[in-house]
Design a protein around this nucleic acid. Sequence first.
DNA 1: GAGGACAGGATTGTCGACGATCTCGGGTGG
DNA 2: CCACCCGAGATCGTCGACAATCCTGTCCTC
Lengths: 228, 228
Amino acid sequence: MTAAGPDETGRGRSPRVVDAIRDAVTGGEFAPNQRMVEAELSERYGVNRASVRDALLELASEGLVERIPNRGARVREVSLAEAVEITEVRMALEGLCAAKAAERATEEDRVALRGIAASMRDAVAAGDMFGYSDLNKRLHELVMTISGQATARTVLARLRGQNVRRQFRLAMHPGRPAVSLPEHLAIVDAVCAADPVAAEAAMRAHLRSVVDALPEVEKSHPRRFDAL
Amino acid sequence: MTAAGPDETGRGRSPRVVDAIRDAVTGGEFAPNQRMVEAELSERYGVNRASVRDALLELASEGLVERIPNRGARVREVSLAEAVEITEVRMALEGLCAAKAAERATEEDRVALRGIAASMRDAVAAGDMFGYSDLNKRLHELVMTISGQATARTVLARLRGQNVRRQFRLAMHPGRPAVSLPEHLAIVDAVCAADPVAAEAAMRAHLRSVVDALPEVEKSHPRRFDAL
DNA sequence: GAGGACAGGATTGTCGACGATCTCGGGTGG
DNA sequence: CCACCCGAGATCGTCGACAATCCTGTCCTC
């Protein structure tokens, strides 16, 4: 058994194709609902069609692409309703992780958490949206790491991939940091205070506010034409 | 949004091989840590090795088998610690579903829930462990269905596959129904009373008791020799 | 002109074979 | 006697080709 824990679902394989396509999808190089023809991807990435096929299988199980039996794969369109569902699942799971993290955090963990909190304050003060978005991700990941919940971590990693773009747009939404910063600070405070109940409540409150904000950013950000 | 919900992660493909192997694994035809050589499975199920390969990829992403890059796949051994983690995740997620179900349940749903509750009482009174185990599964699934949370449902379905056998052993544990029956009835009552807070609390209390019971059944049930 | 059948093209699903990588055993030198 | 090297065996990863399936546009019939 390794030291860190088995969060990598042992799939090994050739990591390059599946990761390349995953990055392309999450990075927005493929539009939602765009067809992903195996032969095209095969040529684009310079690998065999079977490898592309395996990669698409993997991405389908991650929920990033959608496969229809004899009709091929396409980028999965995550509707607003699904984004809300996913965030509600995050609420439940990250709430659990926050509680566990409050129970298990070492002094070293607390230092790291407070460091992120301080950086967040600075980023918001400096108007550094991009930096704040990155810190946001790091904070949530650190809480999961401290919690030691490998299962929840794996599930959450999978779900996060499905709406990274929406999360990013939310982070860039004007006025959003003013709301989320105190929520993040409350999470850090509760975990550092070793108060599981408060930590879970703070995390759930934060993600509840994300749920409430999702329709807002949806309205202001015009949808790409997603006909058919 | 569709009516029933898109819980089938669009993987399509040839369902037969992957389902056959999945059933074999969850049914205990393969011992934990047993090697699963692609060529052997290929012959056993009368399909090509590539199909077996795809199936193993799928099962690896479901957490049922473990794949090591150039060394093949084997049945994943779910440790007690992992089973606890999985149940804790279920606690968080099914708690969410119970709350949502309490908000959304129709009169028809309530009738179905009370029907299961009554059948559970009868099964326990008659000492029908097997029937009770089946009703247990149906109750949890019905709550998920009523909740309308397709995302949580998909995640939970995946997790359940990883410790069906342990769940079954737990249900068969002597004295267990006496503990779990009132918990199940409390869940049904709270959902039927349209009380989300109580429903979530009841579900979480139930799965907390499952977490607490896991080490017990582990002790009384001798582990199969899992060397190496 | 409308509806249905049919052929054409495109795409996926399946197959057998080749090459790459890893593990395990025997042999050799210190 | 132990450590290292190396070849054999086994298994996985990759490849190109064939067959099955599905969608699209066209043609025929009413």
